[in-house]
Amino acid sequence: MAEPLLRVTNLRKSYGALHAVDGVTFEVDRGETLAIVGESGCGKSTLARCVARLTQPTGGSVRLDGVELAPLSRRRLRPLRSRFQLVFQDPSTSLNPRWTVGEIVREPLRLQGVRGDVPGLLAEVGLDPGLADRHPHQLSGGQRQRVGIARALALSPDLLVLDEPVTALDVSVQAQIINLLLRLQEERGLGYLFISHDLAVVSAVAHRVAVMHAGRLVETGPAEQVLGRPSHDYTRALVAAVPGT
C-alpha cells in the first residue's frame, strides 16, 4: 500500500493537565481534502498548529510522505517546511501591515533561498500582479485572503493546512475563495487539512470529514456519510444545529 501524503498517528498536545489534542489519528492523501470540524475549544486549531509545527506536539507521530516530522527540532525541520504550509483564519492579522503584498509573498522564497515568480503567484490566486506594491490595509478582506493563499503556495507545498480560511469573509467572497481552493487543489494536486466550524462550508470542500470533540475525533468518514447520516450523537447535534437547512 502506498504511503499517504500525511499520516498522523495518536497525536497528543497537552498544556499541563489540559489535553487539547488527545490521541488523534487520520490520513490525508494527495488531491484530497480532509475537514476537521468541531466547535471552539475542541482542539481543532491546536491540531492544525501541531501538524504545521507551529507548536511541538507532546506525543504521537506526524509523517509527511513517510518522513517523521514530530520529533524534529526547529532547525532540522526548516528545509522540510516548504512541503507543508498554513493558511490562517483572519487575513487582517496574518499579513504584516508594514510590508507590501510583494514582500509578503516573497518572504517564504527568501527564507528558503529559492527563486519564485511572485507576479505569477498573484495571478494564480486571481489577484492583479499590479497589487504587489500595495499594503494589506489597501485591500479588501477577500483580496487579503488571496494574498495569504499566494504566500502559502510560494514554496510549491504538497499539503496545505487551512485553519478556518473563509470564516472571516463575507458570503459572496467565501464562495470565491472556496472555488479558488478547489481549483488550486485540482491543478496542483494539493492535499488539504481543512479546519472549520462551518458544516456548510465543509460540505462544499471536503472529501472526508472528521468530527472533533474535546480533543478527540468522534467520527470520521466520507463527507456525504458524516454530514448526511451521522452516526455519533455529537455529530447529529452539530448537524441539527445548522440554521436554515
Partner: peptide, 21 residues
C-alpha cells in the same frame, strides 16, 4: 453562492468582484 450542508463537494456559483467600498 451560499454553501449548504448536503449539496456536496464542488464549486459554488459566485458573484464576480468585491462589494464596493
Amino acid at each position: 453562492s451560499r454553501p449548504r450542508v448536503g449539496t456536496g463537494r464542488g464549486p459554488l456559483p459566485v458573484i464576480p468582484g468585491y462589494p464596493p467600498a
